[in-house]
């Protein structure tokens, strides 16, 4: 841990900003978990709770923006402090978008729950596990300033993209084979896509975590520059 600032209020402001980001990430994780459980367990109450949780996350995004601007204005942070503030302000919209994806999943889950269960819903399980792990690890990389973990998360996004692609292919085939369930398969395709988007946001978070910890911009790297 770095030594404390001479200005105690500076430490308090940075600490509050960080805590709000971590709280927001925790809430988004819970919302995503509830939304997918609502789908797999066919539990409308969980879906409704997940949708309702989004409001609190939206408010936290605004709070983080406000506190970030306040820290920039009052303390003019530099070096690692500046990177932490910038990263926090960039993390929060990504977390908010993850919560939005959770809401989308919960809404589609409620629609699916109105009809007989589709065995293909199991396709979602590994995709959700991969997306959730990426999200958890990305916020962990930020919280612990773990550069290696951040890099590892970014590398895992390709696997998620592939899983989503495979799911799309299989569900599209099923749509052709069983057109009566077309709407259900379409909802599963969108749910898979939402989880793939969660992975994209987790990647953004991980990239910002690496920037905060090591001042290194690892975005948009080609294979040549990344190695």
């Amino acid at each position: 841990m770095p030594p404390k600032h001479i200005l105690g209020t500076f430490d308090e402001a940075l600490s509050s900003l960080r805590n709000n980001v971590l709280m927001m990430a925790g809430l988004a994780e819970r919302t995503l978990d509830r939304a997918v459980k609502g789908l797999l367990q066919r539990d409308d109450n969980l879906c409704t709770t997940a949708i309702a949780d989004d409001e609190e996350i939206d408010q936290l995004e605004k709070q983080i923006d406000k506190e970030g601007v306040d820290v920039l204005l009052r303390f003019q942070p530099v070096a690692s402090d500046l990177r932490r503030v910038v990263a926090a302000m960039k993390l929060s919209p990504n977390i908010e978008r993850i919560a939005d994806q959770a809401t989308n999943i919960a809404r589609r889950a409620r629609k699916l729950n109105r009809h007989p269960p589709l065995p293909e819903v199991e396709i979602i399980v590994p995709i959700q596990a991969h997306a959730m792990a990426m999200f958890k690890d990305s916020t962990d990389a930020f919280a612990r300033e773990n550069v290696d973990l951040g890099r590892a998360v970014v590398a895992r996004d390709k696997d998620l993209d592939h899983m989503n692609k495979m799911a799309n292919r299989r569900l599209t085939d099923r749509m052709a084979q069983d057109p009566k369930q077309l709407r259900g398969y379409l909802n599963l395709i969108f749910i898979s896509r939402s989880l793939e988007r969660v992975g994209d946001h987790a990647t953004n978070i991980a990239e910002d975590a690496v920037y905060a910890a090591a001042a290194e911009d690892i975005r948009h790297q080609t294979v040549a520059t990344a190695t």
């Binding site: 770095p2 030594p3 404390k4 600032h5 001479i6 200005l7 500076f10 303390f75 942070p77 530099v78 070096a79 690692s80 402090d81 500046l82 990177r83 090591a214 001042a215």
Partner: peptide, 16 residues
Amino acid sequence: FTNPSERRTEDYITGR
């Protein structure tokens, strides 16, 4: 001012 190499620089410019 974004990524000093030395800990003492970082501590000074960040007010530590």
